[in-house]
Write a protein that binds this DNA or RNA. Structure first.
Lengths: 129, 129
DNA sequence: CAGAATCCCAGCCGATACTG
DNA sequence: CAGTATCGGCTGGGATTCTG
């Protein structure tokens, strides 16, 4: 059932459902990290860029724009010289971020087990060949 | 601090930490959907492909292979004719899937709000131009 | 500082064909 | 059934440059 009305629920398993598109936008590495970085309060563009480490200007801009378009992040510009811009979580974004943080923290916590699994897997592959 | 030892925790904000790589692998659309589809029990390759809808053979194969390599999914082959293969969640994968499902369900639940936000955003953009 | 615009290349991904 | 292999288009994304 796919969701013309506000009350209806999307179905991520329906390729025609918009949820697919949105899921693709929010289920990515940079989104997880950006939302996590905004969780402590408003952050400015370059501070965000520094905090994330390794993200390009372009990707940060795209990610923020998508998040803003989906109503998950708000953008406020202040008429200082030079201009100051702050990004912050919207109420909707805050609730998404709770889940995202759990995901990120889970990954950080279990990275050791996954690396071990990788070694096993690669070793078995090598034996096959 | 980044995680040579099993006991240590990764840091997703460190570009050099393996957590970055793994996070990129697990935080994507297909992974979310595959894990969700495996949550009810073992599923075979083609059943999975049908369940997901819109995924190519190649992407499904890649996604499953990555999940297996990271120790999140197990693969069992049965010597029937033709061969039968079942994919299932590992214990580690089950715990990740809990988080993933929350994320997917959240998206399905709030897709209406996000679509509304998109319309607002696009409308404001149009007015700007 | 906070971006938009441009260029350009690696690699993602779908389609197709083939194997056990 | 359950994949792997290969090819080719297309675009995601980095580097650079320019603007308000």
């Amino acid at each position: 059932m796919c969701a013309k009305k506000h009350e209806m629920r999307g179905d991520a398993y329906d390729p025609a459902c918009p949820t697919r598109v949105v899921l693709d936008q929010i289920a990515d590495k940079w989104t997880v990290l950006v939302l996590g970085a905004l969780d402590d309060g408003p952050v400015r563009f370059n501070a965000l860029k520094r905090r994330l480490g390794g993200i390009s200007q372009k990707m940060l801009g795209q990610t923020l724009r998508n998040l803003e378009r989906n109503g998950l992040v708000t953008r406020r510009a202040f008429a200082t010289v030079p201009v100051t811009v702050e990004y912050a979580l919207s109420p909707l974004g805050e609730r998404l971020t709770e889940r995202m943080n759990e995901l990120r923290i889970w990954a950080e916590k279990h990275i050791g087990e996954m690396l071990a699994a990788q070694r096993d897997f690669d070793k078995r592959q090598a034996e096959m060949a």
